[in-house]
Design a protein around this nucleic acid. Structure first.
Length: 557
RNA sequence: GCGCCCGUAGCUCAGCGGAUAGAGCGCCGGACUACGAAUCCGUAGGUCGGGGGUUCAAAUCCCUCCGGGCGCGCCA
């Protein structure tokens, strides 16, 4: 990363200043300081607040500290062109063109790997997301969950972590039984048998569809079974169909899971029971009102939580603990779950239970997102699986397209509730920011096609004379292009995928402005070569950014 | 009432303790005689919810109040 190199240059200068007696002895390590592009381009390419941070520690005025650092800068000529003290004590740095050129060349050399780093060092991270109950089709909230989770997963891979994507399937319990009873009733109806639809049954058409498909393949065969067996069989078939539907919806959305983890297996293998015994052995459980409680308050939760109901059935929580233990047991160093805000209250108890069983609570992390408020022409759309009135993720993707949906879901801070107006999304689809970004990519591809048509040689990043790139627009584009590693780092470490969208849009904008000012294919062979290297680097970086977002980098529109 | 999250332009939202707070949409006015006008340039629009505090520096951190979302279940 560029900022890492600049930080090192500044630290060296500060240490040299201290050795020369221009500054008092420095702390080791140096306090954290920022190196970032200033808002105002007149302040140079990067600004550092190292002098402002050191001043109070050293007991000297910021500008004095800054002056000492600048006078001791021994940046190689191929890194910095100049440094000045400005304002309250900022160091404004101007990058040497050769420095940016070196990074531009590395965009070509690293290609699809440009922007990636080895921060993770191959450590294994499990990202669990979506994990919607298989009792109905995915609705739009799952789209936000999926887009955020998938982008976080891709960011972590780019940061050098080994990532596994996982979907936890709640394939047992009351809601699954309700699904089975609902399908059963529709099945009987189809066969003209008397059937009473359960009062708490799922109303959606998909229930009828499942029943229809069962009737199609099994005919009336299931009627031969005892009612309990028939229900069990219907439950199994319904679950399988729902999971297939969910899987294919997610695949159409660009998400493929490595593992579909069945909750049922945790019960059947005895893992749930063993986990309860372990908690009991550690005196973390007690009985009250006939139920078994976990002492969650010992771990920061605001009340103790039931783990086994008074009727002997374990709660959802009882399976969630061994599930996460299982993740650790499979060798993952770090767990990330993506949950809706409605589960915010569950974080403390699960983290507490994991801590109680010997795991560092900081290795279990939950990314929370606010729900998507679906609207149609400004009117609220009710979303409830039970009533059957909801718009599915599949419908949404069909309506606005996968690229726009993926981009939109990630473009906003997950912690902020999001309004998704279907009519608006359809109507303004041509003005979606995703098209602005894709257009920049397609435009570059168009230039490259035109170059080929004219017989212009392919750009050779190592040999082109990049010192010919001198206009402000070329310089701005080059600096923006080589900033990708920083963006990936910040977005990944902070779990803030929306930064990728912001960067993609800014990079596209910088390119469009450049395009308006600088012609790429000119009579000047050397200048053409240099500009081709620049725009082709922009193309690769745009593509890499869009890849992380799961948005297609189209060559034509 | 308690916990978590949010409050920034008319609307939807970016914004990393840092310099004059930004973008998109919408409004108004301009720009194609060579690489794609799905673009670009310009104009207008702000008490960063209010008030304290910390700091050389606060939209950003802390406190408090106001407004909103979600949760506070032997549901998942």
């Amino acid at each position: 990363m560029i900022t890492r190199e600049l930080r090192r240059v500044l630290e060296d200068a500060a240490r040299r200043a201290a050795q020369a007696g221009a500054l008092p002895t420095l702390p080791d390590p140096l306090p954290a300081f920022e190196v970032e592009p200033p808002r105002d381009p007149r302040h140079g390419d990067y600004a550092a607040n190292i002098a402002l941070v050191l001043a109070p520690i050293l007991g000297r005025p910021p500008r004095t500290v800054g002056d000492a650092i600048v006078r001791n800068l021994r940046a190689p000529a191929d890194v910095l062109q100049g440094a000045t003290i400005a304002g309250p004590g900022f160091l404004n740095l101007r990058l040497a063109p050769a420095f940016v050129h070196r990074w531009l060349r590395s965009v070509h050399a690293e290609d699809r790997r440009f922007g990636h780093t080895d921060l993770g060092g191959g450590r294994r991270v499990l990202v669990e997301y979506v994990s919607a109950n298989p009792t109905g089709p995915l609705h739009v909230g799952a789209g936000r969950n999926g887009a955020v989770g998938e982008t976080v997963a891709r960011l972590l891979e780019a940061l050098g972590y080994r990532v596994s994507r996982e979907y936890y399937v709640n394939d047992c319990g009351a809601q699954v039984e309700t699904l089975a009873r609902s399908v059963d009733a529709r099945y009987l109806e189809l066969l003209g048998r008397p059937a009473e639809f359960p009062a708490d049954g799922y109303q959606g058409d998909y229930v009828r569809e499942i029943a229809r498909r069962i009737q199609e393949t099994d005919g009336a065969g299931l009627l031969e079974l005892e009612p309990a067996q028939r229900l069990a069989r219907i439950e199994e078939l319904s679950l399988r169909m729902m999971q297939d539907e969910i899987r294919s919806t997610l695949e159409a959305f660009g998400i493929v899971f490595d593992v579909w983890f069945s909750e049922r297996t945790l019960h059947e293998s005895g893992a749930v029971q063993r986990c309860i015994e372990e908690l009991r052995r550690r005196d973390l459980l007690y009985e009250q009102d006939g139920a078994l409680w976990f002492r969650a308050t010992r771990f920061g939760d605001d009340k103790d939580r039931v783990i086994v109901r008074s009727d002997g059935r374990p709660t959802y929580f009882a399976a969630d603990i061994p599930y996460h233990l299982n993740k650790y047991a499979r060798g993952f160093d770090h767990l990330i779950d993506v949950w809706g805000m409605d589960h915010v209250g569950d974080v403390a108890r699960l983290r507490g239970a994991l801590e109680a069983l010997g795991h560092d609570p900081s290795t279990f992390e939950v990314v929370l997102y606010q729900h998507v408020r679906l609207r149609n022409e400004g009117e609220a759309v009710r979303m409830s699986k039970r009533s059957g009135e909801f718009v599915t993720l599949r419908e949404l993707v069909d309506a606005v397209g996968r690229d726009a949906a993926r981009f939109f879901f990630v473009a906003t801070n997950p912690a902020v509730p999001m309004d998704f107006d279907l009519a608006l999304a359809r109507r303004q689809s041509a003005e979606n920011p995703v098209y602005y970004v894709q257009y920049a990519h397609a435009r570059i591809c168009s230039i490259l096609r035109e170059a080929q048509r004219l017989g212009v040689p392919q750009p050779d990043a190592e040999r082109a004379d990049l010192t010919l790139l001198r206009t402000p627009e070329e310089w701005a584009l080059a600096r923006r292009v080589v900033a990708l590693p920083e963006v990936v780092h910040a977005a990944g470490v902070r779990r803030e995928p929306q930064r990728l969208c912001a960067y993609a849009r800014e990079l596209a904008e910088t390119f469009h402005v450049f395009y308006g000012q600088c012609r790429v294919l000119t009579e000047d062979r050397d200048l053409t070569a240099a500009r081709l290297v620049l725009v082709d680097a922009a193309r690769r970086v745009l593509r890499n950014t869009l890849d992380l977002l799961g948005v297609a980098a189209v060559e034509r529109m």
